[in-house]
């Protein structure tokens, strides 16, 4: 049994608190449909790629421990760098919740059923079990709407580092692709966090802050 990706992403988007941040995978159907359901709100950074989405979210969560951080990734990406689970279990920030679209295929490599290739989760690999064995405090393997609703409720009603694997039907994006690149997505996300947290992220040259005694010309 598995869920429809577009439907369950819509459920997650509807439950998302206004004051949280989201680190999402950058390309493919997950990003396109998430952007559609969240109307491209800048609280989501579509900045992750294969193997680095959880790592990015983990660093973000550790930098902003008062802020709920949601991570959105796919099974192929997670499988590429399982060391992320070790770091997640090791540091386990209470404010981090990872949701994974586990459809058991490399979806974006080809069109239609014949174009896909299976990931290891189509076989015996079990991401939630791997996460649990790496010390992630809460893990779940979800395949029904009821289970999903329960996990979404827990994710936003308590602070506990969590990994939620959502068994999902394969299927290409049901919405239009996004048109931005990583540079534009970064600036949009950074400017949003700067306003949200009242901080500066991109730097001001030190001489402009009076921090250099002997600034170089130019």
């Amino acid at each position: 049994m598995a869920l429809d990706r577009n439907d369950w992403l819509a459920c997650l988007a509807a439950a998302l608190p206004d004051d949280c941040l989201v680190m999402s995978t950058y390309i493919g159907a997950v990003s396109f449909e998430w952007a559609h359901h969240t109307e491209e709100h800048p609280r989501t950074g579509h900045l992750g790629q294969m193997g680095d989405v959880i790592g990015l979210a983990l660093g973000l969560a550790m930098a902003l421990p008062h802020r709920k951080v949601v991570c959105l990734d796919g099974d192929g990406s997670v499988l590429m760098e399982l060391g992320q689970f070790v770091a997640m279990g090791q540091h386990a920030p209470d404010n981090l919740v990872v949701f994974v679209v586990d459809n058991g295929v490399y979806e974006s490599i080809g069109w239609g059923d014949a174009g896909r290739r299976p990931t290891a989760t189509a076989g015996r690999a079990d991401l939630a079990s791997i996460a649990a064995s790496c010390g992630v405090p809460h893990t779940a393997d979800v395949s029904t709407r009821e289970q999903l609703d329960t996990e979404i409720g827990l994710a936003f009603s308590r602070n506990l580092c969590s990994f939620i694997n959502v068994r999902t039907e394969p299927g290409h994006s049901q919405v239009e692709p996004r048109r931005t690149d990583g540079i534009e997505d970064k600036y949009r996300f950074v400017r949003y966090i700067e306003r949200l947290e009242d901080i500066r992220i991109t730097g001001v040259p030190p001489q402009d802050l009076g921090l250099m005694e002997d600034p170089e010309p130019g």
């Binding site: 193997g51 959880i54 973000l60 550790m62 060391g83």
Partner: peptide
Amino acid sequence: APVCNEGVGFSMCAGAWLGG
């Protein structure tokens, strides 16, 4: 934030920078 893989460490560093 010690890690057992420098690639994960780099991703975490990048995420921390995004958080200020």
